[in-house]
Design a protein around this nucleic acid. Sequence first.
RNA 1: GGGCGCAUAGCUCAGCUGGUUAGAGCACUAGCCUUACAAGCUAGGGGUCCAAAGUUCGAAUCUUUGUGCGCCCACCA
Length: 890
Amino acid sequence: MSTAMSPTYDHQRYEKKHWDAWIQGEWFHGNLASDQQAYSVLIPPPNVTARLHMGHGLNNTIQDLIIRWKRMQGFNCCWLPGTDHAGIATQMMVEQTLASEGTSSKELGREAFFARCVQWQEENGNIIIEQLKKLGASCDWDRQAYTMDAKLSRAVRKIFVDLYEAGLIYRGERLVNWDPALKTAISDDEVESREVNGSLWHIAYALEDDPHNTIVVATSRPETLLGDTAIAVHPEDERYRHLIGKRAIVPIIKRLIPIIGDQAVEPQFGTGCVKVTPAHDPNDFAMGKRHNLPAITIFTDACHLNEQCPPHLQGLERFAARKQIIDELSQLKALIEVSATRQALPFSQRSNVPIEPRLSLQWFVRMQALAEPAIAAAKDNELNFYPSQWKKTYLHWLENIQDWCISRQLWWGHRLPIWYCQSCSAVTTGMSDPSQCQACGHDELSQDEDVLDTWFSSWLWPVSTLGWPEETRDLEKFFPSQVLVTAPDIIYLWVARMVMMSYFTRGKLPFKDVYFNALICDKQGRKFSKTLGNGIDPLAIIEQYGADAVRYTCVSLAPLGGRVKMSSEDFQNGARFINKIWNAARFLLNYTAAATALEDFDEASLDLPSCWLLQSFGETSREINRLLERYQINEAVDLLYQFIWRNFCDWGLEAAKLSLEKKAPEDAAAKVQTLSVLGFVFEGLLRLAAPLIPFVCEELWQRFPAHPRWPRPASLVIAAYPDAAQLPSFPQAHQQWGRVQELISAIRSLRSQGRIPPKELLAPLVQAETKLLGILTAHSPWLASLAGLGSFSASETVETPPQQSLVATGQGWTVYLPVGSHLDLDEERKRLAQEVKRVEKIIVALAAKLGNAHFVDRAPEEVVEQSKEQLANMESQLTALQTNLRSLAR
RNA sequence: GGGCGCAUAGCUCAGCUGGUUAGAGCACUAGCCUUACAAGCUAGGGGUCCAAAGUUCGAAUCUUUGUGCGCCCACCA
């Protein structure tokens, strides 16, 4: 029934097949009728404009791993997917398209432009969703949400109205971060400060009552003197104190402005005098408030000098204006000095141009009250961060929270549900568009032109995706979610705000755990960016190596938090791992292909290697579950890798070959047992690995005959996750076989040191304590096949080591390997001498420890016992080594 | 300027409760085409755990200081 397996795993043949089956089975769907405990996760909605990059790859693989693991544990899982309408980004994309058609948003007008945005979204908005599916994301695709959906838009409107009515939304004139390229305000969080080389111009202002005397200010923005409304000095500055209260004359425009004293002025910096331009600098704005200064805006929305400026300057762009002003100042001999300086300049992350602080009427959310429960939740450890140090960052921001400017001068987004009365200029809002002013009843209303910041819909994500403001069954079942997996760079923009909004709408946390995944960088540690072109395209890698390889590689490289350096070669590792599993299956299927089901094994009559394998599997299962519970995901993945490769393949399968390859009828029963254990553990490891690498596991699982101990549902995605408590356990056998493995490794090592060809059979002498000797004798066929022995002799004591032999020692055993002519005496003496030295060093350390009365008194008893045992053991090893060294002496 | 973090093998990193003879993967060396896998197997080399001081019977692990490097926040004109 199974088709022949190629020696290498060919992901192209299987991924789509299983994806389609999973969707068909509806196993990713959060079931409202289920009695099982719900477990839900919210996807950080990617922008509709986004294309899958490695950051998404890692972030979504981690979410998928968690949700698949929980699903296999029997939870009623719902991983809610969706996209974000990305106001600025989408608008820019559409503008670009329009420009290539020779038109623009202005020409189209608001409505037509909005329609184009909708169209763009319909055509391109789902690309990233399709890409997530390629990665294997087991989201509840029936519940896919979009922030501009009718449903979510209603939630946005509702929350706006609620906040407005609660007095938490207000309109105010403030300095905002103005992006002159996009001609919109952007939030503080979209501003990035960069160090640039700048100049400091020293400009002389004549004093009103003594025009021959001047006061000199230092500024990096001379052009803003057109908007100066004061000069400030530190009130205690001896040099200038006498000038406070007098007036100075702004050069060029000859405006009279007061000289004021303000604590904010740093006497050491520049000249100690600051020109104050409240409309164009946040500091100056604050100072202006304190001293009741007028604010004069000198720029248009595109940052050209406006009608407030002298006619000959009007229309100049801001940097051209700077040059012009400097020229004029030097002609007036008012420019005293220019010095070079490094300065932090705010840039728009969106358009990459310097931000212009601009005074304008905007809408704000009052944040302080909203922040309170969000602060308490973290302080009380109801909300937990992984890694935990982010708690401080989160709290610091919330405790110093500023009001949030939510209006954007864009067309794409949720338009503010605010109407101004033409007659009385009162404001009307509500869930339905008003037809008359709620203050005066006048029916001529005009809606605010602005739209809401995109994050204003994002902070509702935990409730809006589940149907809020309706009291839906989804909301009842799947709110709150369990864990949010995201990147730390949006801890303020999104994480903290969702917490606030969930408290406001539901009085509850939206999730109890926040997992911050690593930031993916190139090998030089630089962020992936379009301009550097250093990104790795996950789709190309999926194409080349398969989704499983991408998933494994991402997660195994990425520790919790932090930063991971990644290159496209790293994915070969993943591909190798997948291929290893594939081949282990190929090997096993040689023996099981004929059977439709495996027989059960009898725990009482298993051989030692089988017991060891079962015990290893149990321990691994326990540890993986434990690590996943603690979100130590890359460690769980590493453990899985070690178990599959080292334990199962290198030892389990190699040991099993012995009985599998036997043909005699009397061996048949043992063979069935071995095969049953291998089959059981292999299915178990497929289950352990399925959340991480679902495609290859599903394919292999379906090819595999059923085992009586693993009930078989229709798909591996809903099969039970291994639970150590229900697995057979053989701690003693595990330990015993461990010592045999140690011995085998030692013999292999001696062979290699003695340069004995792999095919030559060996005949070592093993000295060991009685019990171990018994085990070794009973397992001589395994020693033969795994260590390449022809025969071996065993003894409890060895007085004189065999002539010309290599020696190795371990816990309770010594092995001598006669090598005759192979022996290079000099080299062996050297090696032994080194070995003696190593052991002696350990003995000295242990003896010193045990000789220390404090240690014996104060250390826990078992630690002392352990040290004593170790010492005895090391001493006997030393004796054996020394004896052999002497026997080699000439 | 404030806050957070990092420093362990050539590279990327584990080592979360102090008890190791400090681990993994990649890279490197030697030997193997052993009919599951050469995308493999076996063996091996490689580390004053950044520095100094301290706590302790015992420190890669805890404390302090220093050095170097990241990131975030902040208005030094």
